[in-house]
Design a protein around this nucleic acid. Structure first.
Lengths: 361, 361
DNA sequence: AGCATTATTTGAATCGATTCACGGGCGACT
DNA sequence: AGTCGCCCGTGAATCGATTCAAATAATGCT
């Protein structure tokens, strides 16, 4: 016994043609079933007869039905989507973080949406709010070096949020950080091991936590070796500032022979300045960059650098987020600190390394 | 006469404390007004008395009320959000496109969400579907070199979608493309003008539309000058393949003196290979890259390159999308073709350029 | 004061997918 | 034959913000 008249089916078809997007109602009418059945076909196919399923699927195909995500979300109260707000989509570290997060979310059947705050606090907060309003399962934030109030507010409202690459721990949220000080230390220590004795640090602005930490680490390594460390604060982390700083350093009478740069572009600039002055890299001057950007490995003189574990940062952050999402009762907010590592390339590899500070049995 | 009992207000407060997110209902109760009024405070503040507004805002603040985006979207049937699916978030061209799109959407009060398909057709289609389901105002797609069926289906369903950096025009959607052939032509023509006579093209794989077009353009320039063009197809567009290809080319007896590379990393590789063999760039060999990536300008020998107007691509695409969104009745799907331009740097600038082919009055 | 306007506020209806208590149909087992 | 269960399918109720016709308050005008 047919449960609905042919006119019902006709109406469903018409709705689609008239531009209004078909709903489960339309599909149900066309297929001659109840809306609940359509929903079951979509969400619990095994609760439905093969025959019914076919009918419904045919109707879906005929109408070009697409689920309304908003309605789903409204009922469910949440989504299977994670939002990631990035401070700078042009920086390969953040791209790596995004990749890591993508991999980890995809492995859990979640979608990852990105937003680029473009080093703008207002935009950052706006996108955080958007994701919060959109009922995302959780949020990831690779923030700029500023207040995290908006993120903290979201965390306190109960939406899971994990901060990646942030300077400090926080009682309200999980964080994933990198030991920047260790990075600076590794860089300087490496140069000293290569025989450098007159060290300099190039980077800035120093009000940025990360940069200051890197400087502190470098300074510690220098102090341990009883060496001085000249500091040149730059305005930005780009090639031009590196060239300027390098030029200034190499012009001085007591020339430096080892430079720790707070970024790879700075290192490129320093090396360019050295080339202009006929200072040989690595023979007369050893240089280390930071971040392992593409240009470090692809430069004519491959640049030694401190590599940040971007992919792992994204993965770990997502892991922490998922833990929190699953409402693990004994989840405690924590800060995971990952370690950077040195990638030694040509820019710091003396052909005739001094034996100084090399341990021999 | 009070419209609601104190217990109403208490209930609102309790709801928030119990973890369930407060709704407009809760706010209305706490503020002692109707839900419609709360909505007006949020959306039409000038329809509401100063006094009422204050009350409602206080309640919102006290409860930490956050709008439910899903409910809004369900009623409105659309959002003020645009989705952009990118084929490769690690490539600076696409980052530029994203930046352009961001700027243009922000200027129209829209938010831009990104998704990285990571050169994976399945992911690309999944994200397109997600954005479609999420009722975005429109979609932007910087696709991989594959079928655009999913995008076309979305377009036919009536959701505006614009394809950026796609190979071909399409009757169902607007597209923004770059004249790749012109880019190849400009590169080769420039090398010829610099005096190069034994030309090569390095790039691949050639089944990619863009690469083939660049080759065609370069070939055309060579033909016009009655010159041969050696073609080395590479597996990828990276430094390593460039070095290999460059090594092979420079080993030959009749050495090339001008190389058009289909990417900047390839050019870096070629230049590295030249340096290894003692071939001077630009004096013995002129080289042009493609895409104007960071490493082109920041290389020790700054690399001439064909710059794509990434920012403009993003802006124009967004413009087209917005036109379509506003249901302009006389909107016709169109393909806007933008032109790349040459950026001449040191890698192609002969110190003693031949006068050949230079026009004199 | 009396009436017309305008300014505020109200609250039921709406959007569309999901949920779930309910019921019809059918086979199995006693 | 009777009854217990199970399988499928049903459709009203639900999520929460917005809308809008209607009610009410406030103001202006004569």
């Amino acid at each position: 016994m047919p449960r609905n008249s042919p006119s019902d089916a006709r109406r469903g078809r018409r709705a689609a043609q008239e531009g209004a997007r078909p709903s489960v109602q339309d599909v149900a009418k066309l297929a001659g079933v109840a809306v609940g059945t359509v929903s079951n076909v979509l969400n619990n196919p095994d609760r439905v007869t093969e025959f019914t399923r076919r009918k419904v699927e045919a109707a879906i195909a005929e109408l070009g039905f697409v689920r309304n995500f908003a309605a789903r979300t409204l009922v469910a109260g949440t989504t299977n989507t994670v939002g990631l707000v990035l401070v700078d989509i042009g920086n390969s570290l953040f791209v790596d973080i995004a990749r890591g997060a993508e991999a980890a979310t995809a492995a859990s059947g979640l979608k990852l949406l990105l937003a680029n705050s473009d080093v703008d606090q207002a935009k950052q907060d706006a996108y955080l709010e958007l994701f919060d309003q959109a009922q995302t399962a959780g949020l990831l934030l690779a923030p700029l070096d500023g207040p995290l109030d908006a993120a903290r507010a979201i965390a306190r409202r109960g939406r899971p949020i994990v901060v990646v690459n942030a300077p400090a721990a926080d009682p309200d949220m999980c964080c994933v950080a990198v030991d920047e000080q260790l990075g600076g230390y590794l860089a300087a220590h490496h140069l000293i091991a290569q025989g450098a004795r007159r060290l300099a640090f190039v980077g800035g602005p120093l009000h940025l936590h990360a940069i200051r930490d890197r400087l502190d680490g470098a300074r510690q390594a220098a102090t341990e070796a009883s060496l001085d460390l000249t500091v040149i604060e730059t305005h930005a982390l780009n090639v031009r500032d590196g060239r300027t700083a390098g030029g200034n350093l190499l012009r001085q009478s007591r020339r430096v022979d080892g430079i720790v740069c707070a970024s790879d572009p700075l290192a490129v600039g320093v090396i360019n300045a050295a080339a202009e002055r006929g200072v040989g890299v690595p023979d007369d001057l050893v240089v280390v960059g930071y971040d392992n950007n593409h240009l470090a490995s692809e430069s004519l003189i491959p640049i030694s650098t401190i590599a940040q574990p971007g992919l792992r940062m994204g993965e770990v952050a997502t892991q922490l987020l998922l833990e929190e999402t699953q409402n693990d009762p004994d989840h405690r907010h924590q800060t995971v600190v990952l370690e950077p590592h040195l990638i030694a390339r040509r820019s710091s590899q003396r052909r005739r390394p001094t034996t100084n500070r090399l341990r021999t049995p």
